[in-house]
Amino acid sequence: MTSRLSRRHMLQLASAGVAAAAMTTPSLLRAQDSFPNRPINVVVPFDTGGYNDRLARAFAPFLQEELGQPLTIINRGGAGALLGHMFFMQQPADGYTILCTSAAPYLPLNILTQDATFSYDDFYMVNLPSQDYTLLATSADSDLQTIDDVIARLKEDPGSLSIGIQAASADLVNLSILADANDIDFDALRMVTYDGGGPARNAVAGGVVDIGLVGGEGFLPLREQIRPLLTFDRRQRDDWEGAIVTDVMGEDARVVVGSQRGWGLHATLQENNPEAFRILSEAIEAASKNPEAIAALEAQQLATEWYGPEESNKMLAETAEVMEQYLHLLQGQ
């Protein structure tokens, strides 16, 4: 793309952004001389309506208040976020394009299984507030009462329970860890693969599959129709009953975090434009800690917790490492 083209491109964006700003924020009061002096694009590598899209749209009013410039949400869904991540990487690293994505599991999946042209080092995560976890659950009227029932049944006959799960997911890795820890033959498990978390959860709630392992946050609206049996985390999450991993696999139990979602920048921005880098990072931090933002996001069951860049990037790196160890699980069942 020529520079002339991208300037036009930005002009067009500016007008769209102003329109968007007129709709969402009545007043934008910042000075126009320093960064940012024009609207900022937020790339969401998923279609409208998904978690990241809702997170970006709900958070945008508070972030643009901090930045003094309107934000334009750009949805580039497809191919497990690969297309959106590629698009983000193609944009100039000038701070005028930021990313709101499910960094895990999609960055590792793109890199490990889809021959992506980027690497982890190309991304810098400012904050990953949403730390989803795998929840093993069954239908509310199932005869399986505890995780011990499940393990006992699977030990006796690994094919005795049908297991709803997504292919190439953190949930699958967690299932494999659980099976190994309990001497259950993983390859003999009767897995039923779903194309997304939603359909898999519905199958669990409706008793179509005996048990399911899916991201736990998405189960919240179905709370009354399911029975949580095991949370794949070291602490209790979202008030789910049932066991947590350390109950079942001991203190040194390993788990993979599910989706880690939040805000990212081009890694090169740190050297190219430290000023923009600092302003963006601080704005995201300030907006994340804004009580109004927290209230608004919580109302929509969206996460706002502030972990900060260091913690966020570390968590992502850990997930990536475990996923790499289980690469064979991520390439088709």
């Binding site: 002339r4 083209l5 036009r8 491109h9 769209a16 329109a19 750009i74 949805n75 580039r76």
Partner: peptide, 14 residues
Amino acid sequence: YGTITPFPFPLTVL
């Protein structure tokens, strides 16, 4: 189309 789609169209002149 430019005003209603959730991303911009690459343009050269307009």
